[in-house]
């Protein structure tokens, strides 16, 4: 792991008695793409606002690029680009004029601003729409314009709050590819907040799961699933069985069940109309296949299921009792 660029220590924000963010500790390294994942109202946006110094934390420390955001927000904002969810532009100005305004607020001269803005507009693929009024832009175009707007100041870190909200699937894919390219080429650190699991899974190096103001777990997807399901069954094997020549009686399936439960590391076996689900503490797929065939069943398919963010997500958010298991 490289040097850290965002450090949050014991960060807390209270609105009255309600803690929107509760003792948050988080470190993000330079050059990585970090996904902040959580349901609506989990405190993601509040955390981001505190990172930019737009809201003061009740307690705790935020350091971005080594600068304390609460004490010196201007310096932080000089280095950090922020794309709010549902970004707004001045509708009566063209896309180019909007970006030039941002560039000039970042103390660029008119000439520098124009040159940089034209280059960025080309990079995000808006060169055809530069002089069109932003009011006539589509949602996806606005979002790309927003990304260009964030890049105008040559940031070290970009923070994207729900960047893919309301864009069509192709637009989302292009947008995410753009983000990955930026991060890899310019070594920009990206913090992405979202509640779209698949998108986060596609692009993020690491993911933090954020619920009710607390970070429940962080790590890459494999680490997360290991952490979360280690005490039960981290490996799930699913098999489809065919009808056999030996008949389809209950005795056969009972025998198979016993045989499987007899295997090492197998914790549970469920059988449901030709579908078999085996939960194990280790990868036992080969043994399972052997046992199935030995029992005289036909094996149509056998898949080793890896936990995706979906499962992690539902596991966290389905029941109250799971909250805080790892945190």
């Amino acid at each position: 792991m490289g040097e850290s660029i965002i450090e949050l220590k014991g960060l807390t924000k209270r609105y009255g008695g309600f803690a929107a963010v509760d003792h948050l500790d988080l470190t993000i390294d330079k050059g990585e793409i970090f996904g902040l994942l959580g349901p609506n109202g989990a405190g993601k946006s509040t955390t981001i606002l505190m990172m930019l110094g737009l809201t003061e934390p009740t307690s705790g420390v935020v350091r971005v690029c080594g600068v304390d955001s609460t004490v010196n927000p201007i310096e932080v904002k000089r280095r950090v680009g922020y794309l709010p969810d549902d970004v707004g532009f001045y509708e009566n100005l063209s896309g180019r004029e909007n970006l030039i305004y941002t560039a000039r607020l970042n103390r660029l001269s008119q000439n520098e601003a124009e040159a940089r803005v034209d280059r960025l507009l080309e990079r995000v693929g808006l060169q055809q729409a530069t002089d069109k009024k932003v009011g006539k832009y589509s949602r996806g175009m606005r979002q790309r314009l927003g990304l260009a707007d964030v890049l105008v100041k040559n940031p070290e870190v970009i923070i994207l709050d729900e960047p893919t909200l309301g864009i069509d699937p192709i637009g989302v894919r292009e947008f995410l590819e753009l983000i990955v390219a930026l991060s890899r080429e310019d070594r920009i650190t990206v913090l992405l907040s979202s509640h779209h699991l698949h998108q986060v899974q596609q692009v993020c190096d690491r993911v933090g799961i954020f619920v009710a103001g607390r970070l429940l777990a962080e790590g890459n997807v494999a680490e997360l699933s290991h952490k979360l399901f280690s005490d039960t069954e981290p490996y799930i094997i699913e098999a489809t069985l065919g009808a056999t020549g030996v008949g389809n009686g209950g005795t056969h399936t009972e025998a198979l069940k016993d045989a499987l439960l007899g295997l090492n590391h197998v914790k549970s076996v469920t059988f449901d109309e030709g579908r078999l689900r085996v939960g194990g503490a280790e990868d036992v797929s080969a043994d399972v296949a052997q046992a199935v065939v030995n029992s005289g069943f036909r094996l149509h398919s056998l898949t080793m299921k890896e936990y995706g963010l979906d499962d992690i997500y539902t596991k966290y958010f389905e029941g109250g009792e799971v909250y805080g298991k790892i945190a």
Binding site: L52, L54, I74, E75, K77, R78, V80, G81, Y82, P84, D86, V87, G88, F89, Y90, E91, T102, L105, N106, R107, D149, K153
Partner: peptide, 14 residues
Amino acid sequence: NSGTLSRVMAQPVH
């Protein structure tokens, strides 16, 4: 309401 306030405030200006 048009969302420009938070964008301008994210720029390095007081």
